[in-house]
């Protein structure tokens, strides 16, 4: 594995911005993940070579952080927040709903490679709980109905949409999933101080 010429240029530019080349570790790994869809053992060796460190050091870094995939994930990574604020607002029900609907457990990928379901910790969107991140987009104020509508839309998607979860925004990332999916964010649609509770669903919880 190696970088495309464009990514190699981006990497070189980035690396030059740090006083120490090793500091370009996370940027390099993000570029790999964007290019390849995940970070393979081979890619780790490549990055080690670029940074002048032992491959084992890159491995240690990759496994320390939760956002690097060491295997190709499904086309849509559904990461449901399970931490306290979301749990108070019904996150466990949302996860159970997704598990039933997709026929997989959290941590697994559907057989058709479309959906990977994961539980993650607080994503900084607690005021619009329960919420999840779909690839890099936040989808908030979840209800079973909204989940069903979203999955229907995503499952119907034509695969021309970039297969890769484009998380890294270095080069101005574009949405890898349809724009409508980007839902209300605190502050964007609602100025601070105004209600951000879901319009259709009552608060879920008990």
């Amino acid at each position: 594995m190696e970088f495309t010429p464009e990514n190699k240029r981006t990497f070189d530019e980035l690396a030059a911005r740090y006083p120490d080349r090793r500091a370009a570790m996370l940027p390099a790994l993000w570029l790999v993940q964007r290019q390849e869809g995940y970070v393979s053992a081979e890619a780790m060796e490549y990055v080690a070579g670029l940074l002048g460190v032992a491959p084992g050091e890159v491995q240690a870094v990759v496994s320390f952080y939760t956002m690097f995939d060491r295997r190709p994930p499904g086309r849509y990574k559904l990461q449901v927040c399970r931490t306290l604020s979301c749990a108070l607002m019904g996150a466990y029900d949302m996860i159970a709903h997704l598990e039933r609907r997709l026929g997989i457990h959290a941590g697994q990928t559907t057989a058709d490679g479309m959906f990977t379901l994961q539980e993650v910790e607080c994503l900084g969107s607690c005021g619009t709980a329960p919420m999840m991140q779909v690839n890099e987009k936040f989808v908030e104020n979840l209800t079973p109905r909204r989940l069903d509508a979203l999955l229907d839309r995503l499952a119907g998607e034509r695969p021309e949409l970039d297969r890769l979860p484009e998380i890294h925004p270095l080069a101005g990332a574009q949405a890898a999933i349809p724009r409508e999916v980007r839902s209300a964010r605190v502050g964007e649609l609602a100025p601070p101080g105004s209600p951000t509770v879901d319009g259709d669903g009552k608060a879920r919880g008990a």
């Binding site: 990759v62 952080y65 939760t66 690097f68 295997r71 399970r82 466990y92 457990h105 941590g107 539980e119």
Partner: peptide
Amino acid sequence: LRVEPRPAAASAG
């Protein structure tokens, strides 16, 4: 509660 079999990618912390 709802404790998953921890997925490899999400237990790296």
